[in-house]
Amino acid sequence: MVDETTLYHKRKRPAEAFLLSAVYGAASMSVILLAGMVGYVFFKGAGTVSWSFLTTAASVLQKTSGIGGNLVNTLYIAVLTLLAAVPVGVGAAVYLNEYAKPGKLVRLVEFTTETLSGIPSVIFGLFGMVFFGETLGLGYSLLAGAFTLSLMVLPLIVRNTQEALRTVPDSYRMGALGLGASRFYMIRTILLPSAMPGILTGLILAAGRIVGESAALLFTAGSGSRLPKPGAGASDTIRRLWEKAHESGGTLAVELYLQMQNGRYETAFGIGCVLIGIVLCINLLLKLGADRLGNKA
């Protein structure tokens, strides 16, 4: 029997202490491993990264070995992919959440998008090469790569937009409809602005996947690394961009893969540094954006 006239009976609980140290250990291990790996990549690669590394294209003639072309390709493919995927993804989410009657069809579409997000990216690459590359005749081009990637990131955008739409209170919908707004007007003026943080989250997550993808791009966008020349004037720039979209172009991740294959580890680590830098920026952007939008309302 414990003497209950006093509360001072605090005991040591060995099992608890052990568990606590175990979870602490696990937590610090994951941080250390990650930091260690990032640190190692920077240690090996930082020396390679220089202004000319970032701004020139690899050329045997001019004896340069930069990744400027790949950097431009990466940005271009990210923009093209999002241009294709965001309208479709947001549209699909709006349909599923606001128009479709809950039932078998909606569940089927949701199940499909979920499955789609679990498919290995090589399979997207295979499909993209055969369908966009051969059937649609796009060959190895940034456009074929971007279309392939937009299929891949579509679930991310649909899912995040849907989540965001679900958190918009029904009272907002009823308030707008009660004033005489049509469904479409209500969606445009109330729902989409309220859901914007979620939509942005999906968009930035998608950007992260695009930047890091190699398998789906190797056989769709190819590995070109030519640095485009700036156009003279607006219409010339548009024409050049259009042509560029039909050319082969390797992103940073694809170039990294190719450099590794050829045993040029220094360049590979250099690209690794740049990629990690980009992903870090994207994540910071995500956090900043979410915080700012979250506080605005």
Binding site: P169, S171, M174, G175, G178, P193, A297
Partner: peptide, 12 residues
């Protein structure tokens, strides 16, 4: 027009 049970101003 309609006024609801819970005040429902829009987030603007």
């Amino acid at each position: 027009g309609m006024v609801f049970q819970q005040p429902n101003p829009f987030p603007m």
